[in-house]
């Protein structure tokens, strides 16, 4: 940073430099988030209302859980386009299995609930395993493989339901998981917190987490150091599929039916956006899940704020697109500056 001090420039330029330096050191995310929160709370009385805050946190939890998995895959140098479709598939499979088990067994609800959740999670893990095996064993680009599984998974979800919502789940499931509250907050928020904390621990303190960084940072070096690339690559995709399935199950419990229209492309794109805005480098090897979770919160707040300010929903994608490009461009810019100094 010593070069900036010697630069000649007027006061206006200096303050511009200051703002730039602030953004570069603190990061774009907290600055933007503060602007959005302060600006919206001044303009809309509903924004800081209890209902709205809980709603924002709930929606941010879903996005944060998916984005954590996406972040792990991207840090290892891959990509998972199938997460949105996995949400839909897990929702459908959970509802179908739970309804079937409830009518077949008849006994206590808890058994049917466990069977349904296991089936839903299993479907997500299976898609993740397929993605991971294709990427690691056949050495095919993650982007294209998950592009393929995205189409196939969405097709399977629609085929299973014919596009019609699946009902017949035990009431206990919806009440216990979808609508229950602890200390006034929905269960989904606690699950998201637990996932983010667990993932942060995994990233920092476990071999798997460290190896994922090593693989994404420099695959050749990781191989030479004796890291089993294949196993850990498969692991990241399985993790991503499992987390996406978790969100599918939580959403199913929230809406009370299994729907093939849950998740979808929008959720997949938002999870990538959250990871990227949260500082995960698409070149791999860099990124922290807790920052990604904050980015997911930011994206949810932004969408909520745009709605409350009555900004046309058709204009909203433009904001998302611009912020994403801006965040990554700034990241790239600060990295170049650092490497120059």
């Amino acid at each position: 940073m010593s070069t900036t001090a010697t630069l000649p420039g007027g006061p206006g330029r200096q303050s511009g430099q200051d703002i730039l330096n602030l953004v570069l050191t603190v990061g774009l995310l907290p600055v933007l988030m503060a602007i959005v929160i302060i600006g919206t709370s001044l303009m809309s009385p509903y924004f800081l209302g209890w209902m709205n805050v809980v709603n924002i946190l709930r929606m941010a939890s879903f996005l944060a859980i998916i984005a954590c998995g996406q972040a792990m895959v991207i840090i290892a140098g891959g990509f998972d386009l199938s997460v949105g479709a996995v949400v839909a598939l897990a929702s459908v499979v959970t509802a179908k299995a739970m309804a079937a088990a409830a009518s077949a067994i008849g006994g206590p609800d808890i058994l049917a609930i466990v069977i349904g959740i296991a089936a839903g999670l299993g479907s997500g893990l299976a898609v993740g395993l397929f993605n991971g095996l294709c990427v690691a064993r056949l050495k095919v680009s993650g982007f294209v493989v998950t592009l393929g599984t995205m189409s196939a998974t969405a097709g399977i979800g629609l085929l299973l339901t014919n596009g019609i919502p699946v009902y017949g789940m035990p009431k206990g499931f919806v009440q216990a998981i979808g609508r229950s509250q602890i200390l006034g907050f929905p269960l989904a928020i606690y699950i998201a917190l637990a996932v983010v904390l667990a993932m942060a621990f995994v990233q920092r303190r476990t071999l798997f987490g460290r190896y994922v960084y090593a693989i994404g940072g420099n695959q050749e070096a990781a191989v030479v150091s004796g890291v089993s690339i294949r196993r850990h690559l498969v692991g990241t995709y399985v993790l991503s599929g499992g987390l996406a399935a978790t969100v599918g199950i939580l959403l199913t419990a929230l809406v009370g039916s299994g729907q093939a229209s849950l998740g979808g492309d929008a959720m997949m794109l938002q999870s990538i956006a959250a990871a990227v805005i949260g500082g995960v480098s698409l070149r791999g090897g860099i990124g922290r899940v807790e920052v990604v979770a904050v980015a997911a919160l930011f994206l949810t707040i932004l969408g909520n704020a745009l709605n409350l300010l009555h900004i046309d929903s058709r204009l909203q994608p433009i904001f998302l697109g611009l912020i994403m490009v801006l965040a990554v461009a700034l990241d790239e810019f600060s990295r170049r500056r650092m490497s120059r100094v």
């Binding site: 990509f79 982007f143 794109l269 990538i272 956006a273 990227v276 698409l282 070149r283 058709r314 204009l315 909203q316 994608p317 433009i318 998302l320 697109g321 611009l322 994403m324 490009v325 990554v328 461009a329 790239e332 810019f333 170049r336």
Partner: peptide, 18 residues
């Protein structure tokens, strides 16, 4: 700007949809 094509065109994709 040196942004990866994926993010750049994901951004412009959203803008174009809007």
């Amino acid at each position: 700007l040196g942004v990866s094509p994926l993010v750049a065109t994901l951004g412009s994709m959203n803008i174009a949809i809007g």
